[in-house]
């Protein structure tokens, strides 16, 4: 039996690396930057810088609607986007209105309140500077309703207190009363629905961030229908870089996206190396087969 076994050449072996070895190298590539705290800074691309510039250009006291349309599965990509926009909005003196089209969104908003708003901005008051309105079902149907009558759907905040009790809700009749809609999404309903059902018919500026997988699908809306887009963790890291460039004090604070870019960069390098390896071995084998013929 042993004589009948076909002996693989080195090139053939490199072209057929066992998937367990691929997994192992991938694990190491992710683990090492996490252990050594490798951080990378990526300058903001135009599509990210545009979102930043939009928030920056709004006058103090502007109303920003932030929609948390994602689940914990994509939180490593999406949560840093929420952190950056919150820091930026409060630096500019804007007011933040948090809602969610996903049932899992309110927990992410609470995480933001507990981890960022409460410790970093103790002077910002619930109901005056920020409000958490919670989740409502309906997806694009909900957006359609909010466009004509916001308080028909949101009568209370997430804790059940009447919205009329909060000063920042005065004057909010429809989505048209917001200066910017910032959707942090990872699927449907999400960024696309906010653009189609709120931004376009209501002529309201819509921006936001999404996962890297979803980002290419949103490029057709840029720049006319969306002010900009944060694509995945990289987009979040770019926004962090823009924020630090404008407000250097954030350099010494937690930069979650930039810190997480380390493992992502090394993972990308491992995938790139395997793609090169696979193609080099494939081309050598093909040339050899041609010669044999």
């Amino acid at each position: 039996m042993a004589d009948q076994e076909v002996k693989l050449t080195l090139v053939e072996k490199l072209g057929r690396v066992d998937r367990r070895i691929v997994f192992l190298l991938m694990g190491i590539a992710v683990l090492i930057p996490l252990l050594v705290h490798y951080t990378t800074t990526i300058p903001a691309s135009p599509i990210v810088q545009n979102v930043f510039d939009k928030v920056e250009s709004l006058p103090a006291g502007s109303k920003i609607l932030v929609s948390f349309d994602y689940a914990p599965s994509t939180a490593p990509e999406n949560q840093p986007m929420a952190t950056s926009i919150t820091r930026h909005c409060f630096e500019k003196g804007h007011r933040i209105y948090m809602i969610s089209l996903w049932a899992t969104g309110p927990r992410q908003a609470m995480e933001l309140i507990d981890d960022i708003i409460t410790p970093e901005f103790p002077g910002k008051v619930n109901g005056i500077d920020w409000i958490h309105l919670g989740f409502k079902a309906g997806g694009q149907g909900l957006i359609n309703t909010l466009l004509s009558d916001f308080t028909a759907m949101y009568t209370t905040d997430v804790n059940g207190r009447a919205v009329g009790d909060f000063p920042m809700m005065n004057g909010i009749k429809s989505l048209r009363d917001f200066d910017l809609i910032y959707c942090i999404g990872s699927g449907q309903p999400g960024n696309k629905e906010w653009i189609q059902f709120a931004g376009d018919p209501g002529r309201i500026p819509v921006g936001g961030g999404t996962t890297a997988v979803m980002a290419p699908q949103l490029y057709p809306y840029y720049p006319k229908q969306t002010v900009g887009l944060l694509g995945g963790l990289q987009g979040a890291a770019e926004y962090e870089a823009a924020l630090i460039a404008a407000y250097p004090k954030y350099k010494s604070m937690s930069r979650v996206a930039s810190e997480k870019m380390g493992p992502q960069v090394s993972a990308h390098l491992v995938i790139a190396a395997f793609i090169i390896l696979g193609n080099v071995t494939y081309l050598i084998e093909r040339r050899r087969q041609k010669k044999q013929k």
């Binding site: 691929v22 997994f23 190298l25 991938m26 992710v30 914990p72 599965s73 491992v270 793609i275 390896l277």
Partner: peptide
């Protein structure tokens, strides 16, 4: 949920190596 999503990195690496 995070674990399930994180596993994608491993499958993407393996699939890219074989498919591209």
């Amino acid at each position: 949920q995070s674990t399930m999503f994180a596993l994608l990195a491993f499958f993407v690496a393996s699939a890219s190596y074989r498919a591209f």
